[in-house]
Computed example of a mutant assay.
Amino acid sequence: MSSAGEVTPKPLPFMYQFASGAIAGVSEILVMYPLDVVKTRQQLDMTNAYKGTINCLKKIVKEEGFSRLYKGISAPILMEAPKRATKFAANDEWGKVYRNFFGVSTMNQSLATLTGATAGATESFVVVPFELVKIKLQDKTSRFNGMGEVVKDIIKNNGVFGLYKGLESTLWRHIMWNAGYFGLIFQVRSLMPKPKKASEKTMIDLTCGTIGGTFGTALNTPFDVVKSRIQAGSTKYIWTWPSLFMVAREEGVAALYKGFIPKVLRLGPGGGILLVVFTACMDFFRTIHG
Results as ranks from 00 to 15, higher is better:
R266E: 13
W94Y: 13
N91E: 11
T214C: 14
V253P: 07
C208P: 03
S228M: 10
G52V: 05
A49D: 15
V264S: 08
D45Q: 03
L111Q: 02
V97K: 07
S3D: 09
F144H: 11
E250K: 12
Q17V: 05
V225R: 07
Q109G: 15
F161Y: 13
K62L: 14
Q109V: 10
F285C: 03
M107E: 06
C281F: 02
F245R: 15
K263F: 08
T214I: 11
Q17W: 12
G166L: 00
P34V: 05
L111N: 02
A232K: 15
L132V: 00
M46A: 15
S74E: 12
G159C: 06
I261K: 07
A218V: 15
A75F: 04
S142E: 05
F245G: 11
K263R: 15
F18V: 10
D224A: 13
S27M: 06
A19Y: 08
F130V: 07
D153Y: 06
K152C: 07
K156I: 07
I204K: 10
Y50D: 14
L111A: 04
K39E: 13
A119K: 02
P262N: 04
N145A: 08
E200K: 01
M32Q: 09
I185P: 06
L78S: 00
L167G: 03
A232I: 10
F161K: 10
L244G: 09
Y98C: 09
I204R: 10
L275P: 06
V253S: 14
V247H: 08
G252Q: 01
K51F: 12
G95E: 02
I60E: 08
S142R: 02
T287D: 12
K227V: 08
Y98P: 05
P13Q: 04
K62Y: 10
T207L: 14
F186P: 03
T210R: 08
P9C: 02
A179Y: 03
I60S: 03
T115D: 04
L111F: 02
R229V: 05
I211T: 08
W239E: 12
V97A: 09
Y181I: 04
Q17M: 07
E251W: 09
M147Q: 09
T40K: 03
T217V: 07
E64M: 07
G268Y: 04
F260G: 02
M246Y: 10
S169T: 04
I175A: 00
F130Y: 01
I154Y: 00
G103S: 10
V37Q: 05
L57T: 12
L44P: 04
E251S: 09
K62G: 14
I185D: 06
G65M: 05
L265K: 01
E28G: 09
L244Q: 03
K71I: 08
S124A: 12
S74N: 12
K258P: 05
L12Y: 04
Q17C: 07
I230E: 00
V7I: 12
A49G: 15
T210Y: 03
S2A: 13
S243L: 06
D205N: 15
E6R: 07
Y70S: 05
F245S: 14
V26W: 01
Y181K: 11
K59D: 13
T214H: 11
G166N: 01
T113L: 11
E28M: 15
L244N: 08
L57Y: 13
T235E: 15
